[in-house]
């Protein structure tokens, strides 16, 4: 991949802490994460299941609240914004791709893709035109009028990618974008993401897939809610086959164990 990273960070996270509470049970999912992402970067986040990758994505994108720390996007702390402003910020600056596509089943592919444009006030005709163009770009110009249930998994994910990109967001967050796809379709989706990045799009991809991990220009490894490595994929993954820092043949899950703690003091 050949994205160009600038010197000023687009996103700067400092001391981000996130605790999940279920009754008396508390799980500290992020333990003081610091991270900087520059415009045009393709950052892959890897780590064992349950170690905080998705939580990191949610907290950095503003989908979820944090218990401590700051997340500055373009110099503004998104966690000090009220919900309405943060929502608007997401609409204008971010795009999302998820493992299970999360398309709206009652809308066609075209209608799904034009939604982010409509929500930011783009005129309907223009939104439709841009959505159609974006779907054509991901190779779905023949499937505009199809609903999600009429599309294959790969096609649905391409619709989701088109939806994430159509409003030209500053950052696109992708959470296991190939997790639900067979290897051939996954490769096609990965090619698509590469193309997107090559065009200058900032991408943060949470993945288990070492192939994706190796393909990025930067790899962040998360373990037990902490960033344990951040650098070139080649340096971090070394010779380990799964990219998660351990041999999958050894089995086992290395997530943080739930523990009972005292309630946290209010920030």
């Amino acid at each position: 991949m050949s994205g160009v990273a600038t010197t000023e960070p687009m996103l700067e996270a400092t001391g981000v802490r996130k605790v999940y509470r279920t009754g008396a049970l508390e799980v500290e999912a992020l333990r003081g994460v610091d991270l900087r992402i520059h415009a045009g970067e393709l950052v892959c986040v890897m780590g064992p299941s349950g170690n905080g990758k998705t939580t990191l994505l949610n907290c950095l994108s503003g989908l979820d609240s944090i218990d401590a720390g700051t997340v500055l996007v373009d110099g503004e702390d998104i966690h000090t914004m009220d919900d309405a402003r943060r929502t608007e910020h997401r609409a204008r600056r971010m795009g999302f791709i998820f493992q299970s596509f999360n398309l709206i089943p009652v809308f066609t592919a075209l209608e799904n893709v034009e939604l982010p444009l409509l929500v930011t006030g783009v005129p309907a005709a223009e939104a439709r035109e841009r959505a159609a163009a974006m779907l054509a770009r991901v190779g779905l110009s023949q499937r505009l009028k199809n609903r999600p249930t009429e599309l294959s998994g790969g096609e649905q994910q391409r619709v989701a990618i088109a939806r994430a990109l159509v409003s030209e967001p500053a950052i696109v967050w992708a959470d296991e974008p190939t997790g639900n796809l067979d290897s051939e379709t996954a490769a096609a989706v990965l090619d698509l993401l590469r193309e997107v990045h090559d065009a200058g799009q900032t991408l943060v991809v949470v993945t288990h897939d070492p192939t994706i991990g190796r393909s990025g220009q930067r790899l962040v490894q998360v373990r037990d809610g902490r960033v344990t490595a951040d650098g070139a994929p080649r340096d971090i993954l070394g010779g380990l086959p799964d990219g998660n820092g351990h041999d999958p043949a050894a089995g086992g899950r290395r997530g943080p164990r739930p523990r009972r703690t005292r309630p946290l003091r209010a920030r």
């Binding site: 609409a91 709206i104 929500v119």
Partner: peptide, 16 residues
């Protein structure tokens, strides 16, 4: 629920 979550993620305001 999931679709609502996605809409909110995309920036749909709560009032919408």
């Amino acid at each position: 629920r999931r679709q609502i979550g996605m809409l909110r993620a995309m920036g749909f305001p709560a009032r919408t």
